[in-house]
């Protein structure tokens, strides 16, 4: 879903950068306030893993492929969508500048879609589902919806840009990402969360338990 430069006119691309910037700054503020030194290795491990897995495109049929985005996974592990925004910003910076994957002008839109929308929708859907469902299923549902919604927003941006017609764009983006969200995002997120729950249950405990560190964003849940 990495939007190349040519898909959005420069003036609109700048608008998305301006919208994305406060989110990027807030994610840095989150790191300053909530990320203690002990958790830096966890953040780095997830960021590296997400960069690598984004190179692994999975075929979904219809001559199309897709890959995991990962913002929901990071948000769940750190109990904050800001962590997802931060990691996706760092990953997209490297992808854009070193590999030409996603434009530089359109990086604001890409951070907005894959970091902010996917991370926030994914995390809060997970948190809502977690109240009555297991962590695996809640993670699957959150990750799936987060990716799907970011694709819908991307389709609308493509229409505003004059690149896609609205209805056809929504149908095509929606259909492909419904499936990509299922396999690439939901399934992998659930598998990683259950692996972490087995090997490091302490990492996932801080979310709904009492007394441990909580993030300010959780006050809304």
């Amino acid at each position: 879903m990495h939007i190349p430069d040519a898909f959005i006119p420069l003036n609109q691309a700048i608008v998305y950068w301006v919208i994305a910037l406060p989110f990027i700054l807030m994610s840095m503020k989150w790191a300053k306030n909530e990320l203690d030194e002990m958790k830096v290795p966890i953040l780095a491990a997830l960021a590296a893993g997400i960069f690598a897995i984004q190179a692994m495109n999975i075929p979904i049929g219809m001559g199309t492929s897709g890959h995991m985005v990962g913002a929901t996974l990071v948000a769940i592990v750190f109990a904050s969508p800001w962590a997802g925004v931060l990691v996706l910003t760092l990953v997209l910076l490297v992808q854009g500048f070193a590999f030409g994957d996603g434009g530089i002008t359109t990086m604001g839109a890409n951070i907005l879609n894959m970091g902010v929308i996917s991370g926030f929708v994914g995390y809060y859907t997970y948190a809502a589902l977690r109240k009555s469902l297991s962590a695996n299923i809640a993670a699957f549902g959150g990750a799936w919806l987060g990716l799907f919604m970011s694709a819908i927003v991307c389709a609308v941006q493509m229409t505003v840009a004059g690149t896609f017609p609205l209805k056809e764009g929504l149908i095509a983006m929606g259909t492909f990402h419904l499936i990509i969200g299922f396999i690439g995002e939901g399934l992998i997120t659930a598998i990683v969360i259950s692996a972490i729950a087995r090997s490091r249950p302490d990492l996932l405990e801080n979310k709904f338990g009492a007394g441990s560190e909580r993030t300010d964003t959780e006050a809304f849940v």
Binding site: M1, H2, I3, F7, A55, M56, N57, I58, P59, M62, G63, T64, S65, G66, H67, A151, C154, A155, M158, T163, F164, E168, G169, A172, M173, F176, H177, I180
Partner: peptide, 14 residues
């Protein structure tokens, strides 16, 4: 990894 176009590219092509 699949070399098929990703969701966005594929949508664009369509």
């Amino acid at each position: 990894a699949s070399s098929d176009p990703d969701g966005l590219e594929s949508a664009a092509g369509g």
